[in-house]
Each structure stands twice: as C-alpha cells, then as structure tokens.
Design a protein around this nucleic acid. Structure first.
Length: 987
RNA sequence: GCCGACGUGGCGGAAUUGGUAGACGCGCUGGAUUCAAAAUCCAGUUUCUUCGGAAGUGCGGGUUCGAUUCCCGCCGUCGGUACCA
C-alpha cells in the first residue's frame, strides 16, 4: 500500500464514528483525567487555521492520557448565546437560533474532520433550553444565598432570615450593598416588600441602582471587561456611565478568596498577575475627618496613613452624595458649574485627558484627626465615586495628582517623607523617613503606617482597612439573545426567583428584537411578560452565564434532575487541564471561579477551584493586506492618483504579531512623499481609498529579507463568481489609479505593493485561511503535526504554509519504514540491534517528557530524528516499529491506526497502552566528552562509560592532543564532570 | 506610569539542575537521477579568517573552571492595565 493520507482520513474517521471510539464512561474504575478546551462561539465564518491549534494540542494530550490508562473526559460544545449572533441576526434578518444551528453543524463537521477525539454525545449548547434551564438554576443559587464574612462562606437566605428575626442586624457580618441597622422588631414590623428590600441588600444575586457602562448603540449595559478604552469591545461604540437598575452578582464578597485561590492553581505567572490586578487588593486605613459645622464625619480611604500630617486639602468625587450639603451658598454657583461640566464628559474624554487639572471648592472645611489642622474640601473628577469611599485626603507632597491639583489651586504643600536616601522613589514604594509629622518623626515609612493606623484606631478616628478594586458583576443585558432572568414581580413590584420546576423560562419567539425606544426587546413580548406567575423580568443574562458552569455539565450532560449529578461530579471533580485563548484570561476564568466557590460553599462541588491547570495557547495570525489609493500633487502642481504602501512610506519597520484580539491600528503616514517614475516626487494630499485585499489574491515575496505582499493585475480576474461584487469593486478601484499604479516586472507582469500588518484572522479582514484545503491536500495527520511544529504552543505566530512540505516528507518517510517503494508491507520479526533500540527509546523518552510539558513542537522533531536514524539503519523490525506507532498515535491518529492494523492488531491503536521507556537501551559502553580549555571547547575524546574522575583526568593529561594545547603553559586545575565534560584551567 | 512576557542564523525555532550554542524543519547552494521538469536522494549552509584559528545568543557589567541559562544596570518588542487614593 502506498501512502495516501486522503484515503486513510476517510477510512479511519468512518471507523471511529461507527465504533464510538471516543465515547467516555461517566464513571469508571480507572483514574479520571479531564481535558477541556474553551468552547467556541460558532461564528458564520467557520473554523480557520488558528482555531485548531489549541484543539489539536488538547487532543494529543487527551489521546496520550487515554493510552496511559486514564478515563479521559474531552468534550466540546458551543457558546451560542450573546451579542455576535444577535447582531448578525439584526444585520441579516436570519434568526439567531437558525444561524447558530447551521454554524454549529459546520463547526462539528470541521472538528471531526480534524480527528479531534471529542465525545460528541456530551456536546452542550448554551442556547438550548435544556441547557439554559440549569444556567438559570445556577444563578438561583446566588439569589438564595448570602455571604457570611465571619464564616467566610455563603449561607442560605433562610439562615439570614432566622438571624434577622432573632437579632435584627446585630452581630451580622455580611457582604452587603449598604450598611443596614435594624432591630429584630424592626424586621418583624416590615411588610413583604420591605423584607424583600432588606434581603436584596444581602443576596448574592441582587437588584440595585448602580452606575453602569451604558452603550446606546448596542442598547445594553456592558460589564467592565466588555469596555476597552472607553468604547465597547464589540463594535467600538461609545460607552457612558449611567445610573440604572440592574441585576448584579456579588463577586466582591469573594474577592479575597479569588485572590488567595490563585496560589493553589497552576496558571502562568502572567495570568495570575492579570487576575490579581483585576481584583486589585490594597491595604491601608480609613480615616474619619470631622467636618466644621456638620454632625457627620467624612470617611476617606488611604494606603498611606503615615502621610496624614501632609494633608492640606480633601477631595470628593463630583457625584459624592454629600457635595450638596457641604457646598456653601457662596460656592454654590461654582460647584454647580463644575458638576455640569463633569456630567457632560464622556468616559472616553475623561480617560484620554488626565493631565488637565480641574475641580471646585465647596467652601467647607475638615479637621485633620491627628493634628487638628483645618483643611478645605474640594470636588474633582480625578476622584472616582466607586473606588474606596469616593473621597480622599490629599497629600500633595507625595502624590503626583494631588501635587498638580495643589499647584493649580495654590494650596500649601508640606513635605512629610524625607526620601533623600531613595532617589526616584514614589508614593507606591513606601520608603523614606518621616518629617514634620509629630509623633512619627524619624520613623521609617512602614513603621509609620502602622503607628498612624494604631493612633487612629486608639482615638476612634479611623481603622485598618482592605480595599478591592473589583466591582460587583453587572449581570443584566437589555438584549434578546440570552437567558431570561427567571424572575417575576407581583403587583407591588416584589421580585421572586421562579422555582426549579418552573425553569427554564424560555425566550419567547420574536421576529424583531431590535433595541428600541430605550426599552429592552423582551418588553415588547407582552404576552410573555404578563405571565400567570406575575410580570416577568425582561433583562437577559450576559454571555458569561452559560460559560460559567459548562465544564460541570459535560460531566453529566443529560441529567434532567440536577445541573450535574453528584456521582458524576464526585468522580470527575474538576478540570485537570484547561486550554484556551488568552483573551478569556481575566473575565471568563474569574467568573467561573466565583461560581465554583459558591457551589463549593453550598456543597454542590467537592473542589475549591474549577481548573487545576490553565494553559493559554498563542494566536495564529495572518497578514492583513491593504491597498491605498492616494491623491497626490507633483512638484509642478499637477494632481495624480497614486498607490501608497503605508509601511514603506512611513518607514515603520516590520509589522509584528499582535497577541490579542485588539484591532490593528493604522500606521500614520509620517513621510508624505512618494517617488513615482516619470513624475518625480509627489506629495500625498489625502488617502481616498483604503481597502483590504483578500489574502488569496496576494503573492508573498521577499525583498531584502522582509516579507512583501503584492497584488498582480491579473489576480483580479481570478475572483470567482461568489465574489463578483468584490471583483467589480476591485476592478473599479484599480482602474482609478491606472496611469501610474503598476510596477512592471522583468517578465512583464504588473503589480501593486500592498501594506500589511499581522493580525487575527477574520472574515472582515479577508485573511481567513481555512484548514479544509490544507487537509485535503496533505491529509489531516500532516496538518495536525505541522500546526504543532510551528513553535511553542503558548507563542503567538503568523500562519505560514512554507514548511508543511517538510512535515509531509517526514510522514512519507515514516510510512516508508513499514512499506517498500512498491507498496509492499515490509516489517520483519527479526530481533533488532542495539542501535535501533536506542533510537526508539530515546524517542519514547523525549516524546513522553515533552507531551507532559505540552512541548509538542519538540515532539515532532524527536519523531523526525528517530525516523532519520532508522532509515539510515534500514530498520524494519517489529520491535522497533510497533512502539513508534503507538507513540505517534496521538499526533497522527489515522496513520497510526492504519499501521497498527497492518501490524496485525484488531481494535483501535488509541485504546492500547503507551510504550514503556527502558533506560537500559540508552546505556553506552563509552562516552564522548568535550575537552575544554579555560571554558572553550577544543575537541572531544572518548572514555569508557564507567570511568571515574581520576581515570578520566589521568587519561586526559596523558593525551597528546591535550599536551599540544597546553604547550608550555601549566595546568592549574582540571574539572571533570562525569558523563558531561572536561575543563582545564591553563595559564 | 505600573504589571507580565520576550529578545538565539536568511526564516520558524532547539538546547535537562549552568556543561560541545544553532537540534529539527523551511529556504538557499552544489551534486546524483531525468530527454527535461516535478518528485526523490546525497553533501554543504552562524559570521569573520592570514585556513592556524578567532568571535558569537539585544547592549554594558558581575558571579563561576565554565553563562543563551544566575545576579545588577540599560535598550528594544509584544501583551495587560491605569487619575484606584
């Protein structure tokens, strides 16, 4: 049989389907191993070559673990709810349920085609009512619980009610929206509505008025992580801050545990840092400042209580609730004016311009609790309402922003920390010696922080405090395509979470679900809203609701009694290896960790963390090529249309791979001159057209070792019928620059040089490279191994097809170990020699180690090395080749299956054991050691493998070559590292 | 600004706890085979060189018998994040 990958692909994929080779038992006597991929949103563009990188890696690992005797759970599903599907529906008129269904089928086909060993009987779809019944149920657990800070865990609301009935809020240490003070009789006196409002203050899923990111364009609020640079991550629409009634999850209750849990999991340092950063823990103190002429004391949070003697003014956020009371009649006009100014600023404006100092004086004064000094109270937008207490004590000597403010308003600056010993130190470094600070004078900063905090506490004017940057998770969206909140309101507007029997609350079928007139689309489904149980909530949940818990559903996907069965979760426990893109590193991981911790608290899951090990694969990008038509003027004043290449005209160097989903920023044209043959130097006036060019029309060449992309004139004619519109468009734009556009090659072909950047593959950028064509041409095994061979898994890399031939050659050579040139099976049962066995076992050791390290690129190279060696040895013995087949099975499943059968076995190679590494084959009689002089290797010498240090040293010194090197110098020292090398210090 | 990652041939990238830098692959050069091409096979391929060697892993120091690896200080690239008090 000759090597024909296309034939093998078809044959064995059918076999696997027919035999359900990858079916996973829910429980087993075998040890479990759970390998999870982040499930995709099924977009209309299908899979591109970037998607499978992580899937192939996790597949190899899963197959490896199966062969090591584990019961492996390796599932796949679809994250089908969310904005993209809905937006697509609005644009095209196709209902999201229809487009999603179609796209999922296509994704599944493509994944099966790549031989990914998913157990499809376990697939989930977040938009399926059978699934989102339980998504709604998971959120009910938030509703039915509160967080007890004393016990550091969630407890049922019923226990909170019992506490309120017995003691009111006395002794209650709960995570809450605001501090409540209520006696037991107060509680008992409350009616249903009143009690509901009190409980809402404690529930882990709660409704409140909060300042949210509102995006008018999308007609919905957005979570903090859905906002980038003051714009919506999806679509780049403007986002404003707006107070609204919203459902939220009380993630702040878990801030500390989410932070500490990071020490117990195997995530990369960078990822842990990102999570920790998002949680944003800081320690410091609250300080209470008396306000002249007022009863209340102003509370501020500071990380530097030691600098309190340097306080010369106070600042409140412009939206702070006390601003009105504190404003004196004389200052009223100024404060009003400033508040109006701030309210008119968008989030983006506020972020972009942080250097401008602005603020207004309220007219009121505070008293410094430690030195009694009278300080003025200002408002300014650099103080944020939502962080700390929304008010600060300003220390202009040690804070850059306070300093700018003080200088601008002519406020006194008092030095309190002598940092002469620490040049360049900032406030955050917390170093220096205290001066002008009363009892703290002479103390080092860390000591002074403790002293100041202690003093505040003693006097009842402050206390030690911990602050977290993380905000509660806004969990409402005013959109259609998501899980409805299963909440109904009675006549008095008291909300009730529907019981499990009444779930799921299904989305009503709607034709038109555009956001309109400031109302959520579901509000228009009036029959649905006015249900027999009461008026329904019309907000839906964000896309993260479904992905928070999907890893649990895979364990037991068809359970109709529970979100996951106890037996299943007790067996599978948690995810051992989680693979996915770095773009989900913060939000998705953090939110599902939150959910898991709640479920742990209430006894639903046995582990504290959902994902033991998390690995982020790098993105595969492709060039995004663009053509630019510019209007330019020549020196004689005549006007021309010219093609310009942004990179070359800007001299901007070689574009690199971005590693996130960020949009590629357009390079500015710094140098506005272009040379055009026959016209001289032209000055570019304006870019008239800027159009992405489909990558398949582009030829890549290399000019001065830099990649260069060219569009040839005749390529336009190759646009097929599907792209008739594009073809016409390109003809049109190309004709506009006709006179001077084309550069002629020697052979007469004409081209335009294109600008390019490396970026994420996307349909809209015309740079999607589809794996199907490559698989059809080289076979799936080759595609899989090539993707792994591209480089380390966690690194971002550009897709390049150059090099795939090398992998293809390797596979054919590997095949050639089993079959001769005429296609006859040619494996002998002769006992192999030592050299052959050494090759194989070197390979077994290397591949086994490297799979464990997820270093798949080096595995491929180990296979190549072994194959090259065995070909040289003309090895064709069964005992050499059979272990190799089992070893390569996770990488090239079709090839391995075929060869395994050819070797005379029944059943699948993927159900066999992993070849055992036997170190004895690597033992050599002699070793070759490098001989170095003063650390520089000169030559090598051979020694018996068991020679000790003294023997080697003696042999080296007796060697003629060594003596020649030494010459007339003397040997000062000889270092012998047995089995490694010899180094001689001569001089 | 802060946090994190990275920097090795023409290119993608290898190098166990510090121990022969450049594995493996691409590309390129030469050769074999062929009427010819493709495919395949063989050899070479860091740079410089007076052909003895010498230098070399972003730059400058340090530790060490020995540094791509460890330490200090820079430079550059990428990613995340930010009036967070």
């Amino acid at each position: 049989m000759k090597f024909d990958p296309t034939l093998l692909d078809a044959k064995w994929q059918k076999y696997w389907r027919d035999n359900e080779t990858y079916r996973t038992e829910t429980t087993s006597d075998k040890p479990k191993y759970y390998v999870l991929d982040m499930f995709p949103y099924p977009s209309g563009a299908g899979l591109h070559v970037g998607h499978p990188l992580g899937y192939i890696a996790s597949d190899i690992y899963s197959r490896y673990k199966r062969q090591r005797g584990f019961n492996v759970l390796h599932p796949m599903g679809f994250d089908a709810f969310g904005l993209p599907a809905e937006q697509y529906a609005i644009d095209t008129g196709v209902h999201p349920s229809v487009s999603t269904e179609k796209n999922m089928a296509r994704y599944k086909d493509q994944m099966e085609r790549l031989a990914l060993s998913f157990d499809w009987s376990r697939a989930v779809n977040t938009s399926d009512p059978k699934y989102y019944k339980w998504t709604q149920w998971t959120i009910s657990r938030f509703w039915h619980n509160w967080y007890d800070k004393a016990q550091k865990k969630a407890r049922p609301i019923s226990e909170l009610i019992a506490h309120l009935e017995a003691n009111g809020t006395e002794g209650l240490q709960a995570a809450q929206t605001e501090e409540l003070s209520l006696s037991a009789s107060d509680w008992k006196a409350l009616d249903k509505k009143g009690r509901s409002e009190v409980l809402m203050n404690y529930r882990l899923a709660y409704r409140s008025v909060s300042t949210v990111n509102w995006c008018e364009e999308l007609g919905s609020v957005l979570a903090n992580d859905e906002v980038k640079d003051g714009k919506s991550e999806r679509g780049g629409h403007p986002v404003e801050q707006r107070p609204m009634v919203q459902w939220s999850l009380r993630i702040t209750a878990y801030a500390e545990r989410l932070l500490q849990g990071l020490d117990t999991v195997d995530y990369s340092e960078g990822l842990k840092a990102q999570q920790a950063n998002w949680i944003g823990k800081s320690t410091g103190a609250l300080a209470y400042f008396d306000i002249e002429g007022h009863e209340e004391r102003l509370t501020v949070y500071t990380t530097r209580p030691d600098t309190i003697f340097g306080v010369t003014f106070m600042v409140l956020a412009p939206e702070h609730e006390w601003v009105d009371q504190l404003t004196t009649p004389e200052q009223q006009a100024e404060i009003d004016k400033y508040q109006t100014y701030v309210a008119g600023r968008t989030e983006l404006e506020r972020q972009q311009d942080v250097k401008t100092v602005s603020g207004a004086f309220t007219g009121s004064y505070c008293i410094n609790p430690l030195n009694g000094k009278r300080v003025p109270i200002y408002i300014a937008e650099y103080v944020l309402k939502d962080y700390g207490t929304g008010a600060i004590m300003a220390v202009p000597s040690d804070d850059e922003r306070d300093k700018r403010f003080a200088e601008h308003f002519g406020i006194e600056i008092i030095q309190v920390v002598d940092k002469t010993d620490y040049p360049g130190a900032t406030l955050k470094d917390k170093v220096g010696v205290m001066i002008n600070s009363g009892f703290m004078n002479g103390m080092q900063v860390p000591e002074a922080i403790k002293a100041a905090t202690q003093k505040l506490e003693e006097q009842g004017r402050g206390q030690y405090d911990v602050n977290y940057r993380i905000r509660d998770l806004v969990f409402s969206r005013q959109r259609y395509w998501g899980e409805p909140w299963p909440i109904v309101y009675d006549q008095d507007g008291v909300p009730e979470f529907l019981p499990t029997e009444q779930l799921p609350v299904e989305l009503p079928p709607m034709e038109d679900f555009r956001y309109r007139d400031g109302k959520a689309p579901l509000e228009r489904a009036t029959d649905w809203v006015n249900s027999e149980h009461g008026r329904r909530e019309t907000d839906t949940m964000p896309a993260t609701a479904g992905s928070n818990w999907y890893y649990l559903r895979y364990m037991d996907p068809h359970n109709e009694e529970a979100f996951v069965g106890q037996d299943a979760v007790n067996y599978w426990q948690d995810v051992d290896l989680y693979l996915g893109g770095v773009e989900h590193a913060v939000s998705h991981i953090l939110y599902s960790r939150l959910c898991h911790k709640l479920w742990f608290d209430i006894g639903l899951v046995p582990t504290r963390e959902p994902y033991k090990k998390l690995f982020n694969q790098g993105m595969i990008g492709a060039p995004i090529t663009s053509i630019h038509l510019a209007r330019a003027t020549a020196e004689d004043g005549s006007e021309h249309k010219v093609w310009v290449n942004f990179q070359t005209s800007a001299g901007g160097g070689i574009p690199r791979m971005p590693t996130s989903s960020n949009e590629v920023s357009q390079t500015e044209i710094r140098d506005r001159k272009v040379d055009v043959p026959g016209l001289g130097t032209l000055t570019i006036q304006e870019i008239e057209l800027d159009r992405k060019v489909p990558l398949r029309l582009v030829e890549e060449t290399s000019v001065d070792n830099e990649a260069s992309f060219r569009l040839y004139r005749k390529a336009i004619d190759e646009l097929d019928k599907d792209d008739a519109q594009d073809a016409a468009y390109f003809r049109q734009i190309l004709s506009q620059g006709e006179a001077i556009a084309w550069t002629k090659e020697k052979d007469g072909r004409e081209y335009v040089e294109l600008s390019y950047v490396m970026g994420k593959m996307s349909k809209s950028k015309y740079n999607v490279i589809n794996p199907d064509d490559i698989c059809a041409r080289y076979g799936v095994d080759c595609f899989r191994m090539y993707e792994m061979f591209l480089g380390p898994l966690d690194q971002a890399k550009p897709w390049s097809v150059s090099g795939i031939d090398g992998v293809y050659r390797f596979l054919r050579r590997f095949w050639g170990l089993f079959y001769d040139e005429t296609g006859n099976f040619n494996v002998s049962d002769v006992e192999p020699g030592k050299a052959e066995m050494k090759s194989v076992h070197t390979c077994i050791q290397k591949v086994t180690d490297d799979i464990e390290k997820l270093s798949f690129n080096t595995c491929v190279s180990a296979f190549m090395v072994a194959t090259n060696e065995l070909i040289k040895l003309k090895a064709n013995q069964r005992d050499v080749l059979e272990p190799l087949v089992r070893l390569i099975a996770p990488f090239a499943p079709h090839l391995a299956e075929e060869l395994y059968a050819a070797l005379g076995h029944d059943g699948s190679v993927h159900h066999t054991h992993w070849p055992a590494f036997e170190p004895k084959w690597l033992v050599e009689d002699s070793v070759t050691l490098p001989i170095a002089f003063n650390g520089k290797t000169r030559f090598t010498l051979e020694f018996p493998a068991d020679a000790d240090k003294a023997t080697v040293e003696a042999a080296v010194l007796a060697n003629a070559q060594v003596q020649q090197q030494i010459g007339n110098k003397s040997v000062k020292r000889v270092i012998v590292v047995p089995g490694r090398m010899v180094n001689m210090v001569v001089g």
